[in-house]
Simulated assay, not measured.
Amino acid sequence: MFVFKFLNDQLLKMQWLYDLVRSLVENVFNLDMTTRLGGSIHFFIYDIIKIFILLSVLIFAISYIQSYFPPERSRRILGRFGGVSGNVLGALLGTITPFCSCSSIPLFIGFTSAGLPIGVTFSFLLSSPLVDLASLILLASIFNWKIAIVYVVVGVVLAVIGGTVISRMKLEDYVEPFVFSNQIDGLEEQTMTAKDRLEFSNDQVKDIVKRVWMYIILGVAIGAAIHNWIPENIIAALLGQDKWYSVLL
């Protein structure tokens, strides 16, 4: 238990980074952490560094795992199962093969044209962008493991239910005929060397970080501006559990 707590605090919550930034704020900037300004500056620096470290490491790890599960291999695995068991496997496989939502349409066409049931395909496509290793670890680092695990379980259950419902509704007649008759390009499985996988993972990190860095900084800056400046009772009054619109906000 001690080892788990140590790893959780030092690797996920990065207590070492928290202490390092605190030392920077107090000893270099000569600001008191208990003041609004000191707390906000610490919040901004700590969260920016923490998020970029976690994001880079997780994207690299997930991309490396994903390199072993190209769409064609995923299709072959899912093709062995049907019914609810196929939906469950599709949802679980989607959690370890995190294809982004922008690839949903070509994957749907490719999987369906290859003969996979629509329900199984949808379970895979629902869980893939919704639940992944990055979500699990980020939620665990920000909140705790219970919330992270509940999120994953709920995501997988929703994917299974969604795929099962779609399967029971027999929606094949509403799919355009060309989907069943044409194979989509790009589903051929390619052999990658260890070097190729490392280069692929590194490229994924650069590409994604390049696209989201501005939004991360903006989001953390807003959080830092709110941190210690807006009283907690005001936030609770606006976003309390008794407010129906709190989830939407």
Rank of each mutant, 00 (worst) to 15 (best):
V57T: 04
P106K: 00
D185H: 09
S23F: 00
L239F: 13
L249K: 05
R211G: 03
A194Q: 07
A61L: 14
H227V: 05
V21M: 05
D19Q: 10
R36L: 09
S23C: 01
D9Y: 04
M33W: 01
M169Q: 09
V247D: 08
I65V: 15
L248E: 12
F29T: 03
W229V: 08
K5I: 08
K5H: 08
Q190M: 13
G240R: 13
I222T: 06
R36S: 15
L187R: 03
I48P: 00
G38W: 01
F111K: 00
P231N: 15
S23L: 04
H42N: 03
A140M: 09
G39S: 05
L187A: 02
A134G: 05
G162H: 08
L93F: 15
S201R: 05
F99S: 11
A237H: 15
H42P: 00
E189T: 03
D9A: 07
F178C: 00
R73V: 02
N87E: 10
N87C: 14
L20Q: 03
N182S: 12
V25G: 00
T193K: 05
T97R: 11
T193R: 06
F200Y: 13
I161W: 09
I59C: 06
I96D: 12
D132M: 02
I235N: 04
F122C: 13
L136A: 01
G119D: 03
D9R: 06
V84M: 11
S85Q: 13
P231W: 11
E189Q: 02
S246W: 05
M169A: 13
P231R: 14
V220T: 05
V154K: 09
C102Q: 13
A148C: 04
